[in-house]
């Protein structure tokens, strides 16, 4: 599965995207966040509990309790500031 980061989160994590193989006990976006935090200091900082960020599964905005079953791409990003 591909994990992508945008805006300041990309700089903090240090990569724009990465391929991950999920452990069997990571079933939701929230569980993925907890697991990703253990990968590096940058991950822990970008995905910290108090940080304001959103998520999308397969390019649709969703919530942290969303299941990852069959997902190809999960993204994390700060609130949008377009327009």
């Amino acid at each position: 599965m591909k994990v992508r980061y945008f805006a300041w989160m990309k700089r903090t994590v240090g990569v724009a995207e990465e391929e991950v193989v999920l452990p069997a006990d990571v079933r939701t976006v929230g569980e993925l966040v907890e697991w990703l935090r253990t990968r590096s200091g940058g991950h822990a900082e970008a995905l910290a509990a108090g940080a304001a960020f959103g998520t999308a599964v397969d390019q649709r905005t969703t919530t942290f309790d969303a299941l990852l079953t069959g997902a190809k791409e999960v993204a994390f990003f700060p609130p949008f500031t377009g327009g």
Binding site: F6, A7, W8, A56, T61, F77, P78, P79, F80, T81, G82, G83
Partner: peptide
């Protein structure tokens, strides 16, 4: 709706460096 639901992020160039715009 596009301001809050479309995935765009603004990075400003300031004299003291780059700064990500925060959501209003």
């Amino acid at each position: 709706w596009l301001k809050t639901k479309a995935p765009f992020w603004k990075l400003e160039e300031t004299p003291v460096g780059e700064k990500w715009v925060e959501a209003h």
